[in-house]
């Protein structure tokens, strides 16, 4: 198992290298001269050339790429922000806790609601409870988060004046963003749980469990849910990764200083080192989450674990 984890971690190197090259190339071919933007319209050609030389932008593409990778590997540096002149990594790490907190709150809320309603929906297939739950889930998935966020602010902040609409000062500030971000994900998890459970409900071993005289609740939780878990965990992992990067709108609406908002601000200001750094940071997070999900698989399904294990005894000797 340890060998497998190390192998997976080593695999992250070529993946990240690929991400770096793609992101760097995209930034390189983006039109617009950085120095001109930084200096403004009034800049002289001499000062533009001087700044380009200072930033290393007069070098050929390959050299720039190599320097960027060298910076990451040797100095754990993602470069310096053009705007704030601070190391990019520091800027990201300063904002990351807010993003992580928001994503974690949203995923926890979505997982609880999604799994509970998904199970109920599958067990009561085509009954009223199922119809209502699938209807609400469809609504949740279809609702654009920015629209839902604005509605929530309108009702709970403006009309009722119960909850704050911006900032991260108290725990109350987190309620509306969490609901805004979690609603769609809850719908996705609910639908996955339902279909995955329905697959398992028709399996013969469920009938075996009933034939043992087991209580229906235990049949559902011990036999059905555990077998339905793999696709559910997968979708939660994917959604968690997406939330890290995709909370942009939500962070903007609720004025939360996270990396999503930072990314948008950086793009608007052509602050390329910050854009690249943020994308790389999120990509690294996603691969780590994927690794954790893959490790979780082996705890859920022993068949997956045995693939990674070299067994001393033959699997089949009967």
């Amino acid at each position: 198992m340890l060998k497998y984890i190390i192998k997976r971690l080593l695999w992250m190197i070529p993946i990240m290298l690929g991400v770096i090259i793609i992101v760097f190339s995209l930034m390189y071919i983006t039109p617009g001269d950085t120095a001109t933007i930084l200096l403004g319209d009034s800049a002289t050609p001499q000062s533009v050339a001087a700044l380009n030389k200072k930033l290393g932008l007069d070098q050929p593409y390959v050299v720039q790429l190599f320097n960027y990778i060298k910076g990451i590997v040797l100095h754990v540096s993602l470069g310096t922000s053009y705007r704030t002149k601070q190391p990019v990594l520091n800027e990201i790490l300063a904002r990351f806790p807010n993003t992580l907190k928001l994503a974690a709150l949203a995923i926890v809320l979505a997982t609880i609601i999604g799994i509970v309603t998904g199970i109920i929906s599958a067990v009561k297939q085509y009954k009223a409870a199922d119809r209502i739950a699938t209807g609400v889930a469809l609504f949740g998935v279809s609702m654009p988060p920015f629209w839902l966020g604005l509605l929530l602010i309108l009702v709970f902040s403006v009309q009722l004046n119960w909850l704050p609409s911006a900032g991260v000062a108290t725990w109350k500030n987190w309620i509306l963003p969490t609901i805004t971000l979690g609603t769609a994900v809850a719908g996705i998890i609910m639908r996955m749980t339902r279909s995955s459970m329905l697959d398992v409900i028709r399996q013969d071993y469920i009938r075996t469990a009933r034939a043992k005289g087991q209580r229906e609740f235990v049949v559902i939780m011990k036999h059905e849910f555990r077998n339905a878990l793999i696709p559910i965990v997968t979708i939660i992992g994917v959604q968690f990764g997406t939330l890290m990067a995709g909370a942009v709108l939500c962070e903007n609406i609720f004025s939360i200083s996270g990396i999503g908002k930072f990314l948008v601000d950086s793009i608007n200001n052509k602050d390329y080192p910050c854009v690249m750094g943020t994308v790389l940071f999120v990509a690294a997070l996603c691969t780590i989450i994927n690794l954790i999900v893959d490790i979780l698989y082996t705890f859920i399904d022993p068949r997956i674990k045995s693939v990674y294990k070299i067994r001393k005894r033959g699997a089949d000797n009967g």
């Binding site: 399996q203 013969d204 071993y205 009938r207 075996t208 469990a209 034939a211 036999h223 555990r226 077998n227 859920i300 399904d301 022993p302 068949r303």
Partner: peptide, 11 residues
């Protein structure tokens, strides 16, 4: 049951 391949819970 008829089919032993699917009658046991795999996990």
């Amino acid at each position: 049951f008829q089919d032993p391949m699917t009658s046991l819970n795999p996990v």
